[in-house]
Simulated assay, not measured.
Amino acid sequence: MHQYLKAIGFENIQTRKDLKKLLKEVEENFTHQTIVSYRPGEDFCEFQKEFGQDVGITLCGELDDEEHFEAAYYFPYFEGSGVTTYAEIDVQRKIEKEQYVGLCEDSKIGISLIFTLQNGVEYMREKQAGLAKDVQTSVTFSGLAQGGMILLPVNKNEQQILNEKRASDTRRELMNAARKGDQAAIETLTFDDMDLYSKVSKRLANEDVFSIVDTYFMPFGAECDMYSIMGEILAVRERINRMTGVRLYQMRLNVNELTFDICVPADSVMGEPEIGRRFKGTIWLQGYINF
């Protein structure tokens, strides 16, 4: 049973019988259907059913000549908005099933971001049409969270904001140069990190860590597409899962200068989300490649 069903309001799914009933509802009363040629005599089919604004369940499997559908896997999804990043994307198939993960590098983060691909069947179709392996396009990220915490913002004046922007731009240029093998850039980044570590260590003696660090994006746990994040809330809206009646918060965040949306059950959030405050939690990262 997928643990992130709770993130879109299905905390009531406790047994395999409940899950089968839910997936049958997706198959029989789908909102969207996508089919792509798969193997001789078989197509690969994707059913999607919305259970609220921008949230739902995707069910994928094989469809034979007699229109018999055999489910292979499912996952809850949350559709993000806008464009998060323009980057070179590498898409890989999972070993055990026809599901895909994407990998892209954005200099704002400084690490490779791995995400579950929402439009995997569309990727299969593009690949059959001759899509290159490494795609230079845009990605829309979104995140599902089971819970989280609201923190107050860090108070900054205009000069501090301007200085941080300049430092961020400089670091991004150094990161890009370092990726190309620039030895001077690599050494500068190393010394900057050592200097930053020293400054933070001194401040931690008298300050709380969340008054020093105002945003972060870090891998979490053993799963490659799980991340611990903290970011500024740019927008927040409350939605309802139409089947269960569970309230959901959908928030647009700025995390390390990456902008994307997350969805989390309202009752699992500690604090009141408002624009300007910060959200802290663990997300399952999804991405939609804009072909």
Rank of each mutant, 00 (worst) to 15 (best):
L63V: 01
D64W: 12
C104Q: 02
M1C: 06
I289H: 01
E46H: 00
F141Q: 02
D43F: 05
G56F: 07
N163M: 06
T116P: 00
K199I: 08
G181K: 08
N12R: 01
I8C: 07
T244A: 04
E79Q: 12
L204K: 06
A87K: 01
T58I: 06
G231M: 01
A132C: 05
R203W: 06
K17F: 11
T34W: 01
Q183Y: 11
K21L: 08
G143Y: 00
M243W: 02
E272C: 08
E25L: 04
G143D: 07
K165R: 15
T170C: 05
C224D: 12
D90Y: 09
G287R: 00
D90G: 09
G181L: 15
A177L: 14
E88Y: 14
Y123C: 11
C60S: 10
R171L: 12
A72D: 06
K156E: 11
E173K: 15
S112T: 15
Q286W: 01
S211G: 11
G147L: 06
Y73G: 04
R277M: 07
L117A: 02
L285T: 00
E158C: 02
L117N: 10
P153D: 09
N256M: 13
L22I: 10
I13A: 06
G143F: 02
M149N: 09
R171H: 02
F115N: 04
I240N: 04
E42S: 03
E98C: 09
F115R: 05
E173R: 12
F30C: 13
H2P: 04
I229Y: 03
S138T: 15
Q286N: 09
L196C: 05
E28T: 13
E67D: 08
